[in-house]
């Protein structure tokens, strides 16, 4: 079928470029490491060992060293990565669903509906995200579900905008007009004709959104309103580490580096996807 042929071409073009290959390899490895790694390590992420506090990397079998109560940093980074990746992916899936529905409706229905939706989007975009996050986090009980909800709430607008712009473009294509002229119901026009044609752009936008969501989770957890210790996340590892920045810098440098690298790789993946889906065109 055509769908298969299309995605086959996308995969081939993705893996033809350096960016696509590197980002896919990295993301594959980090996902594997975060979800399977903790079971392969001799140290649990919460097992305290007061005899081996502040070990530097590679000492006593602790590849990345230990923290202030002797917990293995590698185990905690991987465990934290699990939380960060879950938050990034789950909130992106949710916000992409919301954004797609909102954007597609706004793009398909000119006039009052579109005006209302774009006004809401612009209003939400005007809020300074960090303060909104912190306010919400301060009111709500912190935890995984809360943080996913909060990140979703502040990140659906980007996808909505992409979906709206693409819908406006695709809606006026002749093949959509042809189906309208058959008297097809709106639902059919939206889901069978328009959605498959805007999906690539939404996927690209969603990939980039994962990077943003991971970063947002790190912010909030770093500031202490997100994932609560002893549960680890990349953000609260940094929070923990700031007291020991001078004496034991690896506690901050390593999680910081992993966050930066992961965010960068999701961005590279998004760019490669965009290039692979619509070569030479903006997606």
């Amino acid at each position: 079928m055509s769908g298969g042929m299309v995605s086959h071409g996308v995969w081939r073009r993705m893996t033809a470029g350096r960016g696509g290959v590197i980002s896919l390899l990295y993301i594959g490895s980090i996902v594997f490491a975060c979800f399977c790694g903790p079971f392969l390590l001799p140290f649990g992420p919460t097992s305290i060992d007061l005899h081996h506090r502040f070990l530097p990397p590679l000492a006593h079998g602790h590849v990345l060293g230990t923290d202030e109560i002797g917990r293995d940093l590698l185990a905690r980074v991987l465990r934290g990565g699990r939380v960060s990746l879950i938050v990034g992916v789950v909130s992106t899936v949710l916000s992409s669903l919301i954004g797609t529905v909102v954007g597609i409706v706004a793009g398909y229905r000119p006039g009052g509906t579109r005006f209302l939706i774009t006004t809401v989007i612009d209003t939400v975009l005007c809020f300074p995200v960090i303060f909104l996050l912190l306010t919400l986090a301060a009111i709500l009980h912190p935890g995984l579900v809360t943080i996913v909800g909060i990140v979703t709430l502040v990140s659906w607008m980007e996808v909505a905008r992409v979906a709206q712009a693409q819908t406006v473009l695709v809606r006026q294509m002749d093949y959509v007009t042809a189906v309208m002229a058959m008297g097809a119901p709106d639902r059919q026009i939206l889901f069978r004709e328009i959605l498959p044609n805007i999906a690539p752009a939404i996927i690209v936008s969603a990939t980039l959104n994962i990077a943003r969501a991971i970063l947002l989770e790190s912010y909030v957890s770093y500031l202490g309103y997100g994932i609560q210790p002893p549960e680890a996340s990349w953000g609260n590892l940094l929070n923990n580490a700031q007291e020991y920045l001078e004496s034991d810098p690896w506690l901050a440098v390593i999680p910081g580096f992993v966050i930066a690298l992961t965010v960068a790789m999701f961005n590279v993946l998004g760019a490669a996807l965009r290039e692979a889906i619509a070569p030479g065109r903006r997606a």
């Binding site: 079928m1 093949y175 002229a181 119901p185 004709e193």
Partner: peptide, 25 residues
């Protein structure tokens, strides 16, 4: 109200590359 009547009139477009949904067989 127009939907049931729409089938009576159909349209052929100028640009052959835009008149068929590229994502469908």
């Amino acid at each position: 109200a127009l939907r049931p009547l729409r089938h009576k009139m159909q349209m052929i477009f100028q640009d052959p590359s835009a008149s068929l949904n590229p994502r469908q067989s």
